[in-house]
Design a binder for these strands. Structure first.
Length: 426
RNA sequence: GGUGAGAUGACUGAGCGGUUUAAAGUGCUAGUCUCGAAAACUAGAGUAGGGGUAACUCUACCGCGGGUUCAAAUCCCGCUCUCACCGCCA
């Protein structure tokens, strides 16, 4: 959520900055509402002050046994008027808050304007693998190696679902073990959160109200909405909602493993077959709560951690800095790590590392107290996948495939997988 | 699922229509005293939003939302959560 003061002070500048992400907004109406609301506030607060004074007077008169009837009826009239103005002010306040809640975050100054086409590749690891034979895609490999059952996944749940079977499940679990082990070693606290969250949690993350149709709602009795989390970030951002933390307790570093549930409505494409885009996938998510002055450095740390995980697997990947429009609505700055999928000849995201700055903190009312002057300020929040498996498995299968249809297991995973090479079933 | 009790500031805890601008204690921060500390004493200290160049001042907040009243932490209704006991259950 953006700071209303920012818009009051220089609406034009905010409009300009949001244009970087191709977001058009006109604040004229909002500023009128705000002006009207503030005028109402002054008026109604003066009336309340008057009521408070008179109430004390009535109290005193009664105690002295004097007649207070006249004052009482006067206050009755004033009370009615206050109630009316209060309601008006409340309605305006609601309108203003809703308007602001729908605005995306302002891109950081160093973020390039425009859409996807302006994403900037900043580094790569390893060369693109060259194959001297005709390569298979990951769907074929996963099927012939007996790792994933796509057909039965669809039978059980419909399109966009699959099942890990046998060694495939073991490989998936090995990846998760590898991620978890690394994060624990790096001093991040492991949290297994609830998977079904409340509306409030979705609001803080920035999912709601705008993107409520992108999630699976599981319960909607009257006004309670619960939904399956689309990423563990949605849970972790709410861990400290409505809290004031101490500066010396920062940064808070967490990570979670959860499946992620996404509707992905209408986003299916032919080339995204297999497990490139599903309604449910496994992901380990890193998360940090930091002070404003340390959040940039924290973002660097998160990116490096995510890159190290992919490097550890020996996969060819690139890291890109996203242009403004490609950053999700809550984020001021985002870097993607994209792994090479040989059969598609494209890079696919396996990790997204972002700094939300104070955008989510405002939505969830999360602050910290300065050690020096005891003042409270909004905290900064950051998240990064570390990592999502649903594209790592295709990348491993395809990048490590051999001519005979077998696949070499990355060394770091062998202690869990138990074999060095995955061989086709006869 | 049932019954009962409860939710007050950093914490413990009083208040149950109008001397509450929320008692008292603990803890916290300054200061006095001290070589230093402890003790004692003095003062200060929440969050949010307005107004004012400023000193300052006003409003709201006693789990959340409504209601009654001239006036609500206090009375009424709904909700949420916590605790205890009972039932059911992996």
């Amino acid at each position: 959520m953006l700071d209303l003061n920012l818009i009051r002070e220089d609406a034009k500048a905010v409009t300009e900055k949001l244009k970087k992400r191709n977001y058009e907004v006109d604040f004229t109406e909002l500023l009128l509402w705000d002006k009207e609301r503030r005028e109402l506030l002054v008026k109604v607060e003066n009336m309340k002050a008057e009521r408070n004074r008179t109430t004390e007077e009535i109290s005193r008169l009664k105690k002295e046994g004097q007649n207070a009837e006249e004052k009482v009826s006067e206050m009755k009239r004033l009370g009615d008027e206050i109630k009316q103005l209060d309601e008006k002010e409340g309605a305006l306040d609601e309108k203003i808050k809703d308007f602001i809640a729908r605005l995306p975050n302002i891109p950081a100054d160093d973020v390039i304007a425009g859409g996807k086409e302006n994403n900037k590749m900043i580094s790569t690891y390893k060369e693109r693998p060259n194959f001297s034979f005709k390569i298979k895609d990951h769907v074929e490999l996963a099927t012939t190696l007996g790792l994933i059952d796509y057909e039965r996944g669809v039978k059980m749940a419909g399109a966009g679902f699959w099942a890990y079977i046998g060694t495939g499940a073991i490989l998936e679990w090995a990846l998760l073990n590898y991620f978890v082990e690394t994060h624990i070693k790096d001093g991040y606290e492991f949290i297994l959160p609830p998977h079904i969250l409340s509306y409030e949690s979705g609001f803080t993350a920035g999912q709601f109200p705008k993107f409520i149709d992108d999630v699976f709602k599981v319960e909607s009795e009257e006004d309670t909405v619960r939904f399956l989390l689309p990423t563990a970030e949605t849970a972790l951002i709410n861990f400290h909602r409505n809290e004031i933390l101490d500066e010396e307790d920062l940064p808070k570093k967490y990570f979670s493993y959860t499946p992620c549930y996404r509707k992905e409505a209408g986003s299916y494409r032919k080339e995204e077959r297999g497990m490139i885009r599903g309604h449910q996938f496994n992901k380990v998510e890193m998360f940090q709560y930091t002070t404003p002055e340390t959040s940039d450095a924290a973002l660097e740390e998160l990116i490096k951690k995510a890159e190290d995980l992919v490097r550890g697997l020996g996969l060819h990947f690139q890291t890109s800095k996203l242009a403004a429009e490609d950053c999700s609505a809550s984020m001021a700055k985002t870097y993607d790590i994209e792994v090479w999928i040989p059969s598609m000849e494209i890079y696919k995201e396996v990790s997204s590392s972002s700094n939300a700055k104070d955008y989510q903190a405002r939505r969830g009312n999360m602050k910290f107290r300065r050690k020096t002057d005891k003042k409270v300020e909004y905290i900064h929040t950051l998240n990064a996948s570390g990592l999502a498996t649903s594209r790592i498995i295709p990348a491993i299968l395809e990048q490590y495939q051999q001519e005979d249809g077998s696949v070499i297991v990355p060394e770091v995973l062998r202690k869990w997988v138990g074999v060095d090479v995955l061989k086709p079933k006869k």
